[in-house]
């Protein structure tokens, strides 16, 4: 993975979490993993398509998710209900959106997908041949791990599977 894709995410996560929660955020040590990601309680998946191609996961445990949602919306969540889920997915969306704006400024335009939320501990998620950089962000709310499995895409954004295969010429 290209390291220049990392900093926009670090900055975006710092800014967004700081503005939205008002907590002091600390960055932990980076890690590179090629193996499966075994899920924590809550995972938000957002894909990037364009000059940067790949997937970003935001993972945290349920207590962190509830605390974060409570901070974001200014109301106490005792249960991780659909409103809290939507809040957590939205923070993933905002961080990724802001990071993609920064990436676009450095010449890597990409579009982000709507967030998908996975709940349940112990499932394994594979990004196949994309290795993941893991970026831990900790605060008083708990730890949020940002998994980046990104690589440089091509300009016309087309995935190989989207190119129509021409029909074989008929033998005359």
């Amino acid at each position: 993975m290209n390291v220049k894709f990392l900093n926009p995410f670090v900055e975006a996560a710092f800014e967004v979490l700081k503005i939205e929660t008002g907590c002091t955020i600390q960055r932990g040590d980076l890690n590179l993993e090629k193996s499966l990601y075994i899920t924590d309680d809550v995972t938000v998946i957002i894909a990037l398509v364009g000059m940067v191609n790949g997937t970003v996961f935001y993972s945290m445990n349920e207590s962190t998710a509830k605390k974060l949602a409570s901070k974001l919306m200014g109301e106490k969540f005792d249960e991780f209900n659909s409103l809290a889920q939507s809040g957590i997915a939205e923070i993933g969306n905002v961080i990724t959106g802001r990071a993609s704006v920064k990436l676009a400024e450095s010449g890597f335009e990409s579009t982000i997908s709507p967030p998908t939320m996975i709940q349940g501990k112990g499932a394994s998620i594979s990004t196949l041949d994309y290795p993941r950089i893991i970026l831990p962000m900790s605060s008083e709310l708990g730890e949020i791990l940002i998994h980046l499995s990104l690589r440089q895409g091509n300009k016309n954004k087309l995935n190989a599977a989207q190119i129509p295969v021409p029909e074989a010429p008929k033998a005359s």
Binding site: M117, Q119, L128
Partner: peptide, 16 residues
Amino acid sequence: NISPPTMIMGNGIKIS
């Protein structure tokens, strides 16, 4: 346009 595929393995996980 489509994103690269992500594979999730595990039974009974909730995807919303």
